[in-house]
Design a protein around this nucleic acid. Structure first.
Lengths: 339, 339
DNA sequence: CTTGAAATCCAAAACGTTTTGGATTATAAT
DNA sequence: ATTATAATCCAAAACGTTTTGGATTTCAAG
């Protein structure tokens, strides 16, 4: 049976109040009593009932994280790296993580509303922000604490961390055009995602900077999965006038594209250049190793988490809107001069 | 401000009791009242306070999942696939998931004890079981509900799902020896893990079945990471009498080994055979695609979760100790005749 | 009418904490 | 010996829910 404050109180012959205050080292209980209580608590193996505490304290010490997925599986290593950063930082501060997955739409919104209204968490972490993001609209409106990884395109103001995706794609295109590529395809993310816009803009800017035209037929939208990348790349590669390079907007699609190219009999990093975006752990170990834009996903998870906790605790924050400068990781999948 | 039962009660002019019972469709409240209450609840946006419910009901509707990691990051896709299966099944049954990471040892045990004693969860999911597993010993002793993915080697009895790892490795070795390999190296998992034993046993059995001797110097222990596999493989490949095949005991180490081989100038799937174990999503898309032993990780996560929920709810279970038959996935990393 | 049963309602207790607002006791100052 | 002060303690309320064990009302049957 579980040990409660009452049990301890009976054992040491003091009131529940005193026991509670002794455990938290209030200075209106005598040193003797404190010691007595602490010893009893230890011996009896007391651990406070979290739910009673939360009910009374009116906070949950829990952070909410709803992963937006299509289909049931979130197999994207991007999510798990982010989750790891989040989880470890949360644990460090003594917060729990309430994790679930929901595909974008009404069902997702209902989850948010229920969690907010039932006071299930102290704040939310948001991911994969949309250009018009109803989650954000709702949370801003209700004044509920949250921090996002990513921005929106409307004029909503809220705390976020984001990477300068446009710059990232410009770097990619610069790198490719520098090696002589002119026909560069782009595997774009679903349009509603904010970073789709930024990365596509970056792509266009890069091409413009190099004085190159953009062939719109080489811009195709994928679903950010490996399979999606594979399928889109197949189509691109079966064209008569195929591109000499494919810039995928995330690593997973790039992996799919690599496989598609290899199946077509092309040597990636020699016959065709393929690049990614994210620099997930796998990118360095793929074959060939993938040229990509680094996002410190794990670290961003931790950052976002710490920002949220500060926000919840009303602690001062240096910056509430952080944009990181990306770094291009040149690896073998693209590191050759186009002949 | 949050809406409580009291608010609804005042609005409709009934008692809190009645409102509560109306919402849960008890038959001692009149249809008229029920409708009134439901309408009010909807209009006012009522969502029950979970913590109050849990305190009162004395259950948490939460499942605990502590991921055993060395170092802070759990980057193994194995974990995230499992977590996905777990999470989705849990959500389906209306359970929350309390996820955290802890490296094996005293700190991990403390986490278990605190969670058990504080009644934070209704049950646990365990992963990466050890031959002598103190987590399991503790939970069995306290009679706390849990289900494990994996077994122990002592005589403890508890519900689990596991795959016949020995069979899996036998299949691998059979496959390799069938193609003429005689010098086969093995990248083994850390010894304390139960599946290390099973997989190594399987390896030895497979070799014995083929009438081949085992060169103990070809059996090296890795830490299940890509980097670990890479480093161990490097050592193996730098030997003068290098192995013609490497059977890694998980996919991540196999990926590391593939890279090591490629850096050494070997073509994997032609100059050397490399196999893995787990069949994570990436295995199919690596270059070359990886021959490996399939474990339906996502499905196992879901199975384990459902078993735990049944256990918690005292519902009957067909089987409480399930061992799955593995399937060998032959792909290009090993699919050639040794000349 | 009266009675008994059925239908509808509700006050109070309980879950385990923390906090409020004193009450009591010991100690020091007069 | 009295008073003021400090040190220690604690009863009760509160957090929001569910459940227990009646209480009240309604209505048909006698």
């Amino acid at each position: 049976m579980t040990v409660t404050l009452k049990d301890i109180a009976e054992r040491v012959g003091k009131s529940i109040t005193t026991v509670s205050r002794a455990l938290y080292d209030y200075d209106d209980v005598s040193p003797k009593t404190k010691e007595l209580v602490h010893k009893a608590a230890l011996e009896m193996g007391y651990t406070p009932n979290t739910f009673a505490q939360r009910l009374q304290k009116q906070r949950t010490d829990t952070l909410g994280f709803i992963i937006p997925t299509f289909g049931p599986r979130f197999s994207d290593p991007f999510f798990s790296e982010f989750l790891a950063g989040l989880g470890n930082k949360a644990a460090e501060f003594g917060y729990d993580l309430l994790v679930s997955t929901r595909s974008p739409g009404e069902e997702e919104m209902r989850a948010y509303r229920e969690i907010v209204r039932g006071k299930r968490v102290d704040g939310f972490i948001l991911l994969r922000t949309r250009q018009q993001d109803s989650r954000i609209a709702y949370l801003v409106e209700t004044g509920f604490p949250f921090v996002a990884f990513g921005r929106t395109t409307d004029k909503m103001t809220f705390p976020f961390v984001d990477e300068d995706s446009a710059l990232g794609m410009r770097l990619v295109v610069e790198h490719l055009t520098g090696f002589g590529h002119r026909r560069i395809a782009c595997l774009a993310p679903p349009q509603e995602l904010t970073f789709a816009l930024h990365r596509l803009n970056g792509f266009h800017e890069g091409m413009a900077n190099a004085g190159l035209p953009v062939d719109e037929s080489l811009i195709v939208t994928g679903d950010l999965t490996q399979r999606g990348g594979y399928e889109r790349a197949k189509i691109l590669l079966n064209q008569l006038n195929r591109p000499t390079a494919i810039a995928a907007c995330n690593d997973l699609m790039a992996f799919g594209a690599i496989r598609a190219a290899q199946e077509t009999g092309l040597v990636v990093g020699k016959d065709i250049a393929i690049t990614g975006f994210d620099d997930i752990l796998m990118a360095e170990h793929s074959n060939p190793p993938l040229t990509t834009v680094n996002q410190p996903i794990y670290k961003i998870g931790a950052m976002v988490c710490e920002m949220l906790i500060r926000l919840i605790r009303n602690e001062p924050m240096a910056e509430t809107q952080i944009t990181l400068k990306p770094e291009l990781m040149v690896r073998q999948s693209s590191n050759y001069q186009l002949s």
